[in-house]
């Protein structure tokens, strides 16, 4: 056996130290939320529960369940629509470039960096006018529109890797704009759709500013309900922890089972290809 080099040991120690720090909040969430009510006190935050008790989850679930469903109704159509539109835009902007296409792309792209506070007042006014204020469809519309820049960017980068020669030869064979999209681009972009869908799902699920300003009580998505739960003085913090875990569960599961695609989305949305 070779001697374990000291340098390697130090590297492990540093990594393990940070891994522990990073995982600690999850530990606290789990132990706190699994404690029976009479064991929940600030002084014993770090100790393990004497017995596993799911009552915090029952209570958190009964409070968050309707909002959890709202989030589902929001996230599914918003993700699908914004991915589809993004794919179409990305296809045009990468494979049917015209004069000024790059400028138009930049104009669209700027929309993903703006602080949404700067459009919120007119947006709410507008949603009131078209009767979509305080509705889930209203939120869907908002997330589709403001999701366009990122989904367009991701698909445009993704399609850059499909050789132009494939498109050109299809054109020579007489395939039309839509024909090429349906028969060549879509079958080649399954991965792209998975990456974009996971990214949009995570972002829309976790979004808060639009949710808290556009919807009230019954219509609110789960993140607003969680914030209300934690802001409320009468709710025990073990219930808050259980609620936090319930609200985070869908995106955590996506990360656990499709982390590779999640990271690809993260890179695709930040590095311009």
């Amino acid at each position: 056996m070779a001697a374990f080099p000291i340098g390697k040991l130090i590297k492990y120690i540093i990594l393990i130290f940070f891994a522990i720090i990073f995982i600690m909040p999850i530990y606290v969430i789990l132990v706190t939320s699994l404690k029976p009510l009479d064991e929940v006190s600030l002084a014993t935050m770090w100790t393990l529960p004497s017995a596993i008790d799911f009552s915090s989850y029952v209570e958190a679930f009964s409070k968050l369940a309707p909002n959890f469903m709202n989030s589902i109704y929001l996230v599914v159509p918003a993700t699908l629509l914004s991915a589809l539109l993004g794919a179409m835009n990305g296809y045009v902007l990468s494979k049917w470039k015209f004069k000024g296409a790059n400028t138009i792309f930049t104009i669209i792209l700027f929309g993903m960096f703006i602080p949404y506070q700067s459009i919120l007042i007119p947006l709410i006014q507008f949603l009131r006018t078209i009767d979509l204020y305080n509705t889930i469809p209203g939120l869907v519309l908002v997330h589709v529109v403001y999701g366009l820049p990122i989904t367009t960017l991701m698909f445009r980068n993704f399609y850059a890797s499909i050789p132009d020669s494939m498109i050109e030869s299809a054109k020579i064979d007489g395939a039309s704009f839509l024909g090429i999209f349906r028969h060549i681009i879509i079958p080649l972009s399954i991965t792209g759709f998975v990456v974009v869908a996971i990214w949009q799902f995570t972002n829309i699920w976790n979004e808060f500013l639009f949710a808290v300003t556009i919807t009230t009580s019954d219509q609110q998505p789960v993140m607003v309900a969680l914030q209300n739960l934690s802001g409320s003085q009468i709710v025990q913090w073990n219930v808050q922890m259980a609620g936090a875990l319930l609200a985070a569960l869908p995106t955590l599961l996506v990360y656990i089972f499709a982390g590779k695609y999640f990271v690809r989305g993260l890179l695709a949305g930040s590095v311009k290809g």
Binding site: N206, F208, L226, Q227, S230, A247, A248, Y255
Partner: peptide
């Protein structure tokens, strides 16, 4: 993968 809200609450 978490929301800023979850992070804030915890």
């Amino acid at each position: 993968a978490l929301s800023f809200i979850v992070t804030g609450v915890v």
